[in-house]
Amino acid sequence: MSGSSPRLFLRHNALPLLAAAIFALMFGLYLALQPNGIRTDVLVTAANKGVLLALIASAQTLPVLTGGIDLSVGAIVVLCNCLASTLLSGTPTQIAFGVAATLCGGLAAGMVNALAVVVGRLQPIIATLATSTMFYGVSLLLRPNPGGDIDDDFASALTGAVGGVPVSLLLLLAIVLLLWLPFRRSLTGRGLYAVGSSEASAYMSGVKVARAKACAYVGAGLLSGFAGLLLTLVAESAQASAIQAGDLTLNSIAAVVIGGTSLFGGVGGIVGSILGAFILRTIGDLLFVLSAPPLWQPMFQGLILLGAVSFSALPTLRARNRLETYR
């Protein structure tokens, strides 16, 4: 698949490589500017925030690759956050059960979306908008008041560092190496790309369209579950907040676009989205270091999203045939 010749590899991965370069540049600038110097705790804080967004962006990537979208990823993260905040305490067995239950919660939410889109044949955008209301309702049920009881040792172990390397980063690496790469090489994983490129052609070629789509939404639920878990460990509390859910969804889409995944489906991948998430996070950190007024932050987020999508739309302005730009 990838990298039989270096030139082909470069051409296939131009956007993720560009994203990586931009991230390296920006993160270097951040490290140089921030006042505490390069210390492990600075890296750990940056990594935890970055990995959180990276997980949500990865979740968003899967439905986007099929040409759909999941507007409920933020709500699933909040749901799993609320779920985890009631379960992550007590004996190690109980904590392990809590982790498993949280991930299952994300998985279940993803299955609801998959059922709606695949079996119910609803438009992904409207279906996930409706399910996100349900997920928010369940979050309120689980946690009417902000708070939570999380085992301190467990939280600091997973949000700390091992030998100078942030644990959350290792977790992300494990997810990419053990879940994403094998999945991408599998029949269903390649089906995901085929469905996104052209659903009709994929169907005609014998790709199991329904299975690929279902996997995308269930996978999005699972990855959102991981994100919810990490959010719980970082914040050590939970709050059923619709605003936070909306913010997370918005940022996930921005990260996916910045990472070079096409919103029309079929092109891109999780690695790009992770880099996109890191870039987005670093922009926020840079704004903070450069002491931009905090009130400007929401507007920057929106402008960055608009800038990224407009940039990715530039090729359509050069379309040779006007007709090609119409559906």
Partner: peptide, 14 residues
């Protein structure tokens, strides 16, 4: 869907 979502965020900021 994406563009209006971005405009929404910018408006919120403004």
């Amino acid at each position: 869907m994406i563009f209006t979502l971005g405009v929404n965020a910018v408006l919120q900021g403004l």
